[in-house]
Design a protein around this nucleic acid. Sequence first.
DNA 1: CCCGTTCTTGACTGACCGGTCAACTACCCG
DNA 2: CGGGTAGTTGACCGGTCAGTCAAGAACGGG
Lengths: 190, 190
Amino acid sequence: MRRAARLFLSRSYRDVGVDELCAAAEVRKGSFYHFFAGKSDVAKAVIDLHTTALLDRLSRASGATAAERLHGLADAIGTIQTGFEERFGRVVGCPFGNLAAELATTDEDLRTHLANTFAQWEGEFATVCRQAAAEGALRRGVDPDRLARALLAQAQGQILLAKTATEPAAGIAAALHDLIDAHLEEGLAT
Amino acid sequence: MRRAARLFLSRSYRDVGVDELCAAAEVRKGSFYHFFAGKSDVAKAVIDLHTTALLDRLSRASGATAAERLHGLADAIGTIQTGFEERFGRVVGCPFGNLAAELATTDEDLRTHLANTFAQWEGEFATVCRQAAAEGALRRGVDPDRLARALLAQAQGQILLAKTATEPAAGIAAALHDLIDAHLEEGLAT
DNA sequence: CCCGTTCTTGACTGACCGGTCAACTACCCG
DNA sequence: CGGGTAGTTGACCGGTCAGTCAAGAACGGG
């Protein structure tokens, strides 16, 4: 399963064949189809794998204030991406973003699956954003839910741009910190 | 060519075959390969088509102040996306973002081509951001070049999320306006 | 020990992929 | 009108794709 995730991440869903998936898992094709209904089922399982890993990492973001926790979320994403960068030698994109861009208009089932993950992700952000709002850490007029989505979108966009330009992953977290600071009350920004 | 752009946009690069491309253009396969070296050449041409259309639209963004022009850029992107939404019945993604996510790790030639487009796009943003900085419209500590990239990333991310969740395109421009306002000096925000 | 279930195997299928090619036609320039 | 070039055609190629299947092996409970 981890092998499959690696293959999809380093290339693309369509570019990785079932034969290749089987070879990576040292399993023969017949056995593969005994456990999976089809190739897209593997994608679903890979998405679930990444989702639990992501949510686990995000939930670990701690800090005395919501503002600190917000920066912790940004660091969590940065860490994931620098991790991929180390393993693959370059920024290879977000597992969800890659699949979403490739398959959202093609495979309705995977689309909803990915939308679900994004919603959970955004929810994690929103929780902390609302805490920040409650603590009065957010600038006047900043809606916490819209900020949560902006952060998620920023992460996706920065990852995509870094991948396309083959830039270092370090810039991703930096951009997220920028965005957070821009929405924090004066004096709270790092 | 426009037919090809439509096909790639509504589905994905890999999902559209050369045969289909030929059928849409009412051309036989042999003729196709007389004009194009291969399928990826079509993608390049499609990218160029979208690039000129985008840059043209962005350059049309006018306004007395740089702040207004910034909002004009956001509207330009919003208009493009609502246009796609009308034509396809849903948000289908950014022509560049879609291809980048799918092919950046697979086709080095297309990757650089897309990186080039993104750089030009970011450059258009940066010009206006720097004007805003010169006019003193930007908040203290806001780097215009980093803001330009944040805007581009935000656009890409919002489009991807809207596509994945099949949400209306209207939210994309709204999010960009939010982001711009968050970086504008108090009193300038709309 | 037997039998049913779970799992494994590798050969196989039919569709489709991007790309090639030799023959043919249309057109333009001298 | 002759000949070279640009464009056209459809049959064809080898390779790959996701998925199938009949046969058998391994296992586990009664």
